[in-house]
Amino acid sequence: MAFTITCPVCGIRRGYEFRFGGEDKGPMPPEESLASETWCEYVHMNNCIAGIQKEWWFHRDGCGSWFTIYRDTTTNQQVENR
């Protein structure tokens, strides 16, 4: 495959310039509200969707921004925001 990602700052670039940052799970819940299980759910557990997911990427060899994209994990192609 020859994966490309569109960085909001730098435009379309080779996928290897970026680093994957996990599924978009929202901000960390407040520390006081957490139990071991809920902490683990947030930190370690994934949906592992075979399909379109929202996820974080970092433009490591570029502008250095973190941003989210939608990607189809079954084709490894960035897709339009649904």
Binding site: H44, M45, N46, N47, C48, I49, A50, T73
Partner: peptide, 19 residues
């Protein structure tokens, strides 16, 4: 490779897996 997706989709049980 599909075990985590299956577990979540069919039973709502998430696993600490990256495929």
């Amino acid at each position: 490779g599909y075990s985590a997706a299956l577990s979540y989709q069919m039973l709502g049980i998430r696993l600490p897996i990256s495929v």
